[in-house]
Design a protein around this nucleic acid. Sequence first.
DNA 1: TACTGCTTGTGGAACGTTCCCATCTGAGGG
DNA 2: CCCTCAGATGGGAACGTTCCACAAGCAGTA
Lengths: 331, 331
Amino acid sequence: MVAELTAGRRPTIIDVAKRAGVSKSLASRALRGDGGVSANNRDLVLDAAQELGYRPNSAARSLVRGVSGLVGVVLNQLDNQHHTGIVQGVQTRAKELNARVIIGNGGQNPEELERQIDTMIELRVDGLVIVSSWVPRQVLERAGSEVPTVVLTHLADPPAQVDTIASDDVSGAQLAVEHLVQAGHQRIAYLSRSASATSHARIDGVVLALEAAKLPCTILQVESGEDINLEQLSASGIDAVLCNNDLTAAEVIRLAHEQQVQVPGQLAVIGYDNTALARLLYPSLTSIDQPQVDMGRRAVDAIAERTAGRTQALRELYTPQLVARASTAQP
Amino acid sequence: MVAELTAGRRPTIIDVAKRAGVSKSLASRALRGDGGVSANNRDLVLDAAQELGYRPNSAARSLVRGVSGLVGVVLNQLDNQHHTGIVQGVQTRAKELNARVIIGNGGQNPEELERQIDTMIELRVDGLVIVSSWVPRQVLERAGSEVPTVVLTHLADPPAQVDTIASDDVSGAQLAVEHLVQAGHQRIAYLSRSASATSHARIDGVVLALEAAKLPCTILQVESGEDINLEQLSASGIDAVLCNNDLTAAEVIRLAHEQQVQVPGQLAVIGYDNTALARLLYPSLTSIDQPQVDMGRRAVDAIAERTAGRTQALRELYTPQLVARASTAQP
DNA sequence: TACTGCTTGTGGAACGTTCCCATCTGAGGG
DNA sequence: CCCTCAGATGGGAACGTTCCACAAGCAGTA
């Protein structure tokens, strides 16, 4: 006698087929809505699946089909709104293309990021979206050679194996500086909390714009929020500061409050990324907006194109925009 | 003649074995470091794998082994620091147990959350961590009956199939109110932006604490930040407000700035979750701290216990703590 | 009647692993 | 010189699905 259904075992498509009284092939077609199934049998199969609580096993499916229907996103920082905006875009586009998105969080730790990327590749995702500039170049090359890979941050020298979609950090920084110059500021500083490729590009933009305006240039780099020294800024006559992101700008504004420095009266402040924080602060924060959602959507399309056969690397650059708010105004 | 390696095909363990001149069984053992392999052959296999760029196929492995080594996390909101703190805890504990974490983002949309949960179950995760109070009860029941599932938010009436780990929202709200009462506040309001189970529990705490102090109780609910009406608050004599989270508190503080209401002089403000935002605001925000990381770690252990055979539902409640900052002070 | 073609259905191979079991090879003991 | 035993190695089944080739039934047509 053949063994009956074991107690704890998950029902398989064969259990469903048996209960519906059809072959597993027909059950498979019915469950996927594939046509070539009589209405009667289709209902029988669907009911059986329902009653047994059947769930398809992705592993078996992806093994035989060769595609998983998954898009993997690996990112730096879960609670960075710039990143989550991108994820939003990836998700909406993936949903339209009937794919699923899974996310891996690597922190700014290159080893952990590599681990996450490996996990995704071993899960045989159909495409990989990387939102981090901390992934070692060699890891990017390897990933790109194994699966369609799109990097969504500025890379100084992107590997040929990966597509890149970024917003133009040079022109973003230029926009910000020009805005400050037009408002009459003379001593403008750039304040950064990391030394990423992104930051380097923005520094280039700042230098370019300040040279064009024939104004002096100050570049500051700090390890943490506590290292920001506002007195020193004022002492050196700085009257406007562009920060590497909205979070850093928020720290500056908090310090300004504490030390009774008027923003924007004595010090104008600009952030970067135009996150929800920019609207939340007082005074509200002028910031540089990047089309995160569009970039995320585009990344999914880039993967689809690669899958369809494109072999040349994509290099796409979006133009950022300045959103003026209260933290910069006529002095 | 047998077909040679096809051009674009991913190398399999058989390719590795062939190149190393051993059987696939031996290659499998060598790659997993399983012992019972001579040093010479082990090196041969590892070198071959390296040269071919071999990556194990999780689908095949999970299919035959019956476990995936994956923990799935499904959450509401990626950019909510309370949630990301939990994810942090899940990740560290999972790493210690040699498991991998994948994240699904469902938004506050019940359908999308269900879709994400289905994806995880179909991927045959070994355990599911849900950080959302927007998942329909019936979906939780189904998930819990198929895979060890832990819910990390307050649920009014948790299904027997799932474990729950939460922080005690009633006592958290009590803490906040008692802190305000001690500081001499007489007219205290609770301000919420959603009607979740979490919010209801906190309202219970507020009511309890205010009754004990024999003070009147005001509950306000708004749809969005714009709906907060500070004039109305002052008109009704409110001199302290407890918000459903730090974000809502940030809105209140911004409005207070705009309308020249002194915080904490005229209006004391308390947030909830003690996120990075609380330190970032001016004045810095008194908030209720929950042990997110511990809760995340504990969730992974709860899954491990279930896998090991526990059948009774876990109901665990952590005690929150108040972190006093500048937004509440003696009036 | 004999054929073609369409719809509905079935069986079996294949996907890439792991794991059980059988076989082989020496070394050591009697 | 045979037997035993342990370690190293290989063969094959199994996991749950999809898909291909084919069979059966039936209607329409010459």
